[in-house]
Amino acid sequence: MCETVPPKGVDSQGRLTREGSLERVQPAFRAVVAAARDRLPHAFGERLHSAYLYGSIPRGTARVGRSDLDLLVALRAEDWEAGEADRAAADRLGAELDDEFAEIDGVGILLHSRARLLSDVETHDLGWFVACLCTPLTGEDLAAHLPRYRPDGLLARETNGDLPLLLPRWRARIAAADDTEEARRPLVRFMSRHLVRTGFTLVMPRWGGWTSDLREMAEVFAAYYPARADQLRAAAALGYEPSGDRAVLDSYTGDLGPWLAEEYARVHGVKAPRP
């Protein structure tokens, strides 16, 4: 079988490398990144342990006026989930940055406790996310406490092996959304990206590498599942330029999603339950 592109994102020993860096941040986004770094301690005070960039900005592929600023914040807490005060602080900070900097289109802030990020059950999910997909912005880098990862079946199962649990929630979200293209567009974007990443991690152990580019993910998948290739390619395109077509959402929850969930469980098993 011919692979579409050679594996990448791994070192000479086949271990996944960190994909982003502050050096890759494009000039247009440096001011908002600096503002985020400076304001995080004021937003969270002594509860802030560390913060990270992820997504297109630290990868150097962001589009001015189109890309959002993605942050992960690790809190000094033993709680599994962040509290209401922390979420309110994140919302305020995100709104301030989004209003002030026209270069970005929205701010997303993930909040997790240091305890959760370093927990055994999250080692091959959130832990891997921090160590490989997040770029340190401020504070102690938690990657120092995490293992080196390989693109194996365990990583595949723990990152995206929960699609059977997600599909009923997706159907409920679609049913609850306003019946307009504008309301459906964010759902198409989110679900397209999730399905493409799930399709990619389904074959990631066989391919032997990592990429965060949706189109490249779809092409890697296509080499192993040609009968579903066009569906994932279309989803990759919609992940970047989403429509508000209800038929797309119906196809995701009625065809592509259920097939992926079944095939994923067959190949890799089901993700370990979380508290």
Rank of each mutant, 00 (worst) to 15 (best):
S50M: 06
S50F: 02
S50D: 09
A51R: 00
A51T: 12
Y52L: 12
Y54Q: 05
S56L: 10
I57C: 04
I57D: 01
I57P: 00
I57Y: 03
R59F: 05
R59E: 15
G60I: 12
G60N: 10
A62L: 09
R63C: 11
V64C: 13
V64I: 15
G65K: 11
G65V: 11
G65Q: 11
R66H: 11
S67V: 12
D68N: 14
L69K: 02
L69V: 09
D70P: 02
D70G: 03
L72E: 04
V73Y: 03
V73L: 09
A74Q: 08
A74I: 12
L75S: 01
L75W: 01
L75Q: 01
R76E: 15
R76N: 14
A77H: 07
E78V: 11
E78P: 00
D79P: 00
W80S: 12
W80T: 11
E81D: 14
E81A: 15
A82Q: 01
A82C: 07
A82K: 01
G83S: 06
G83R: 02
A85S: 13
A85W: 06
A85R: 13
D86R: 00
A88R: 14
A88K: 13
A89Y: 00
A90S: 14
D91V: 12
D91E: 14
L93Y: 11
L93C: 09
G94V: 10
G94K: 12
A95C: 08
L97N: 08
D99L: 13
E100H: 14
F101C: 13
F101D: 06
F101Y: 15
F101A: 09
A102S: 14
A102V: 12
E103L: 10
I104W: 00
I104T: 06
I104P: 00
D105E: 15
G106T: 09
G106Y: 04
V107F: 06
L110H: 14
L110P: 00
H112C: 07
H112K: 13
R114F: 02
R114D: 04
A115L: 06
A115N: 07
R116E: 07
L117K: 05
L118A: 10
L118P: 03
D120L: 12
V121R: 12
H124W: 13
D125I: 00
L126K: 08
G127R: 02
G127Q: 05
G127Y: 02
W128R: 11
W128E: 09
F129K: 11
F129P: 03
F129W: 13
V130A: 06
V130W: 00
A131W: 01
C132N: 09
C134I: 08
P136T: 07
L137R: 02
T138F: 04
G139N: 10
E140H: 13
D141I: 07
D141H: 07
D141G: 08
L142W: 03
L142T: 07
A143V: 04
A143K: 05
H145M: 11
H145V: 05
H145D: 15
L146H: 04
L146R: 01
P147F: 08
P147G: 09
P147H: 05
Y149P: 06
Y149W: 08
Y149R: 06
P151C: 07
P151W: 04
D152W: 07
D152T: 07
G153V: 05
G153L: 09
L154W: 05
L155V: 09
